[in-house]
Design a protein around this nucleic acid. Structure first.
Lengths: 206, 206
DNA sequence: ATACTATGTCTCCATATGGTGACAAATATA
DNA sequence: TATATTTGTCACCATATGGAGACATAGTAT
């Protein structure tokens, strides 16, 4: 079998087309638009290939998730910075981490759709992705906790609450323009959210 | 036309059966399970009645939402308490409001499903319900703000963040057991969340 | 050349969906 | 009693879904 990419028939290329079709549909319509027929049409290929190459829709979605690296959501840079941070700068590092999370999620529409999907459906794939993300996130959170030797009361829960708040606001902003008087469709509103994060962290960690 | 309820053919009863069928399906399968055929089967009635009595699925859902009073989510009791609260007790009232929100939402599975639906789909009905809830919520929030004359920096955004955090954690707990090291499937975890809310409020408002 | 396998297209199937028209029976009106 | 209207059932349609078998052809190996 030759590896020439100029051939008309090319398994790897077709697989790639199918994976990209998944991404396109998710971007346009979200996960509820995903289906065997829709993907095949989007990729201009026959749906039987999804079964042959990926063993079905589930396998294709798995391949898609793997390629998009949805399993990781926190950059390595932040991990490194935690190691070498001064105790005095810890507060601002926490703020930076949270605000980075906010901004990154706002930019990544596919990730937003994935997170919505995770909230709607519980299956092999969503469980696996969520578990991975949970571990990665908690790893970071734990590093932070040990860094600031004063093991504050409910640090885990407080961080959980703030991260959750960020997630909800970003996801909700897709369908609503205002939340509790804060504009979610303008940078002005998001600036207020960022300020709120700063104020909470600053007041909580003394 | 007689109003005897013992008759075999009874429009009002049938309408009620259809509305209840909607509630049953949402409770069991969430809003993604909702459809003309599924509702008719659940109610043991013909689907044509949905068109005749409600003008279609949308009208039926509207009737359902109205009957369930989803438009209101904050009890009048809290409104009253805000009026007559001492300034010294303001912090604990805010905490009480937030924790009440948390507990009420945790108990109400239909409302959870509705909120998930609102995040997924943007249509006439979800927009109307969300708008109503937003207004009610902000009304309460505004009352609080004027009560504590020190108009703190980003109070709106801070409350938005906390309420959002509560929403996300409750909704996410349907599909995941742990978030940032906090157990969402045990009362122990929720106690931590409640404590975190207390700590944030107490530290933020001096 | 021949045969073989990999890749891809096509047709068909069973099922489910939303939606509609024809009809039967119960109830109300005359 | 006779007639009209309301309430409900049934059959049907067009369309979309996931899934599988039959087949054509491109690429490889003999």
């Amino acid at each position: 079998m030759k590896k020439d990419t100029s051939t008309q028939r090319n398994k790897e290329l077709s697989k790639q087309k199918l994976i990209e079709a998944v991404g396109n549909i998710i971007f346009r319509e979200g996960f509820k638009g995903i289906g065997i027929n829709a993907i095949a049409k989007e990729a201009n290929l026959d749906k039987v290939l999804i079964y042959r190459y990926f063993g079905g829709l589930n396998g294709l979605l798995k391949a898609f998730a793997k390629q998009k690296d949805f399993y990781i959501n926190i950059s390595n840079r932040l991990h490194d910075e935690i190691e070498k941070v001064q105790k005095s700068e810890l507060k601002s590092l926490i703020v930076e981490i949270l605000i980075t999370q906010l901004r990154e999620l706002r930019k990544d529409r596919e990730l937003q759709e994935l997170m919505l999907w995770e909230m709607m459906e519980k299956n092999e794939l969503t469980i696996a992705i969520a578990k991975e993300r949970e571990e990665k996130g908690y790893e970071l959170s734990s590093k932070l906790k040990t860094k600031m030797d004063l093991t504050n009361g409910e640090t885990d829960a407080i961080m959980a609450l703030l991260v959750s708040g960020i997630y909800y606001l970003v996801l909700r902003s897709k369908t609503v323009d205002m939340f509790n008087g804060v504009e979610l469709n303008s940078e002005k509103g998001w600036q207020k959210i960022e300020n709120a994060i700063k104020q909470i962290i600053n007041s909580y960690f003394e």
